[in-house]
Write a protein that binds this DNA or RNA. Structure first.
Lengths: 199, 199
DNA sequence: TGTCATGTTTGCACCGTAGGCAAGTTCTGC
DNA sequence: GCAGAACTTGCCTACGGTGCAAACATGACA
């Protein structure tokens, strides 16, 4: 039994701290929120706050959950084309984001406005990028790893494009995978543009 | 006359602070360097340090100089293919990095090791990315801007690939532009992989 | 149920980062 | 040389973040 009372409590406390942090940011603006205030609202001591999170940002920007192992395995050992197999991977990721849809909506502006949050968010995007390009490299170990990073960063950007349009499009994220692939193909077209101008 | 004594002094002070910061990091490790020590070594008060830089990281990670206007104009109004015109832009950028070659070598490890520096560096990369994708969008205003971000991020990654191999390859950066384009084409190949497996 | 080991929270003390303010110093234009 | 702008500095305050040891809660087991 791994889900002991202790662990559940910890989960709970962690969630309470995060919630308090986000609410306070929303009410007072990120700059004006202190770790002391967050601790107070979530009913723990400031010292405990720092047992859970290394800093204020970390309480607000959660790192995205890792990709499920089976989905990764399917991609890495996939027998279709790169894009075909990539689709399931991206859908899995978008699906997980769906749960956080409301939080994403709330945090988007906060992130836009505060360099510190932006940095924390960047760091979490960088992890995603590394994870993805790792999968790519495992799938085709002979391809230049830098190329895999390039491709992964393009995919991450494409996903970002979908997320950023959350306010203009209510469609569930996963139903919008196509946009990623349309964009990848458009990108290819730009790069492969024939030597003679097309008017 | 814009290059007044005052401005030169400011430049000078700024450079002295940066130098002191980098030297100290090299001698004592980033974590063990305080803004107080940096200020002391560069002969200013701690208060003045904060007049110049918002924080320790900013003194260490300089943002790359902007692209020269004429190079940008040539790219934006260029009449060749996308890749052909892109070349001059990338060469200009690599050329500017050449001047910092030694600093880059010194700072690389520091950045790898310290999340705070990494974050500062990411932020400066993000500016580069935004600048580049802005140029791309101005050149072809009808193309989906998200695609331009994807492409720009791939190019930035490719440039990063060159910089990261600074220790394995002494060739001047600008002489290695080709690697960027080879990699862009490889990336296109991966994405455009024909539907039937190629063994 | 009692008790012991382990894990978690807390208070406290301490250092470093960062900014506001006002007084002092240096530079610029006239 | 002088008035005013720009810059530097010291002082004061607040927040961020960590180490430590005491207090407390929990799980295991008799």
């Amino acid at each position: 039994m791994t889900t002991t009372l202790r662990e559940r409590r910890k989960q709970q406390t962690s969630r309470e701290i995060r919630l308090a942090a986000i609410e306070l940011c929303f009410e007072e603006g990120f700059e004006n929120v202190t770790t002391e205030a967050i601790s107070a609202r979530s009913g723990v001591s400031q010292r405990t706050f720092f047992n859970y999170f290394p800093n204020k940002e970390a309480a607000i920007i959660a790192r995205p959950p890792p990709f499920p192992d089976d989905v990764v395995a399917d991609f890495v050992n996939g027998s279709g084309t790169f894009l075909e197999d990539l689709e399931a991977l991206v859908i899995a990721h978008l699906g997980q984001l769906e749960e956080d849809r409301e939080i994403i909506r709330t945090l988007r502006n906060l992130i836009e406005m505060h360099p510190v949050l932006r940095a924390a968010h960047d760091a979490s995007m960088r992890l995603l990028l590394a994870e993805l390009s790792g999968f790519f490299a495992r799938r085709s170990p002979d391809t230049d790893p830098v190329v895999m990073e390039m491709l992964a960063s393009a995919v991450v950007m494409a996903i970002g494009g979908i997320i950023r349009s959350i306010d203009q499009d209510e469609t569930p994220f996963a139903a919008r995978v196509d946009e990623v692939f349309v964009r990848l193909r458009t990108m290819v077209d730009v790069v492969s543009q024939p030597p003679v101008a097309m008017g």
